[in-house]
Amino acid sequence: MLYSCMNNTKWSEIRQAMVNMTSPPLWKTTFLNGYESAVDGEWFYHFSEGGYSDIQYLDVLTNSVEQHVEVGAILRSIHVPGIMTSTGYRILGYADSASSVAYL
């Protein structure tokens, strides 16, 4: 069974923070039904299109050390559930009940 780790406010905070960056990172989402979006760089309209309720996780794809550090600081300030990956960060929208969820 999956449980929600995020809410619309937190997703909106991520969206707004990325929109405000000078050089926003790319992103892609995986949905509860298994669909994986294409990699996208447009945070203002595309990220919020369709709402957030079915996002299983969001991959934020950083392209430089500087961007990685900046995005990490932003995500920690928002205090979101997720992990650092080899390509950036994965933010969990849902997790299973057996998993331990860490917060950035």
Rank of each mutant, 00 (worst) to 15 (best):
Q56D: 12
I78V: 14
W27V: 09
E49M: 09
Y35A: 14
S48C: 12
K28N: 15
S97K: 14
P25V: 07
M18W: 02
R90I: 02
Y52E: 03
E42D: 06
M84N: 08
Y89C: 01
S64V: 07
A102V: 11
F47K: 04
S97N: 12
D54W: 05
N7L: 07
H79Y: 12
Y89A: 01
E66A: 03
G93F: 05
D40G: 05
M18Y: 00
M21S: 10
Y52A: 08
V71L: 00
P81A: 15
P25A: 03
C5W: 11
D54Q: 05
E42S: 01
R90V: 03
E49T: 06
F44R: 13
W11I: 02
D59H: 12
D54C: 03
V69C: 08
E13D: 10
G72M: 04
M84W: 07
I74P: 01
H68F: 11
A73F: 12
Y52G: 08
D59I: 06
G51L: 04
V80L: 15
W11N: 01
A38Q: 14
Q16Y: 09
R15I: 08
G93Y: 06
G51Q: 03
F44S: 13
I74N: 02
I14H: 07
W43P: 00
T62E: 01
A38W: 09
S99H: 09
A73K: 14
E13Q: 14
N33Y: 14
S4V: 06
Y45H: 09
G41F: 03
I14C: 06
A17Y: 01
Y45S: 07
W43C: 03
S4W: 02
Y3V: 08
F31A: 10
R90Q: 15
S100P: 00
Y3D: 06
I91Q: 02
G72P: 00
T30F: 12
W11H: 03
N20E: 09
T62G: 05
D54R: 07
